[in-house]
Amino acid sequence: MKEIICITCPKGCHLKVDEETFAVTGNACPRGAVYGANELRSPVRVVTSTVIVEDAGTSSARPQTPDCDSRTGNACPCKPAGAVLARRLPVKTDRPIPKGKMFEVMAEINRVRATPPIKVGDVLIPHVAGTDGNVVATKNLP
């Protein structure tokens, strides 16, 4: 028997799942039974991280953006202090990947470089770590 906490809703039922039959007890609703069985059979997670932006430079040598667009909230031209040309691009796997592959996925994410322009949803790594998930951008990088 494996004990896990159900995360389907905020209640947090303490489930007991049989490792062979995947039978679930301790669940207050049917969704708990499904979660419990899946969590033991093939647990999956979405991985979110960042990737290095090519040519963003270090903070001391950051180029200044030539123009600004007040409506989109993009950078202002005058010697900015904040992370204007972002050094990192946020990314995620576009679907949950097997939990056991999280660190493998991270290793691939750490190797890849993003080159602007990039749009939300652009694929940076297809079929990451041999899964059916792709690593995609979660922010626009003009």
């Binding site: 909230g73 993009n74 950078a75 900015p80 904040g82 992370a83 204007v84 979660t138 922010k139």
Partner: peptide, 12 residues
């Protein structure tokens, strides 16, 4: 800040 979005920008 220098962009819109507030704290969500760092909540990746």
């Amino acid at each position: 800040d220098n962009q819109a979005g507030g704290i969500l920008n760092q909540c990746i």
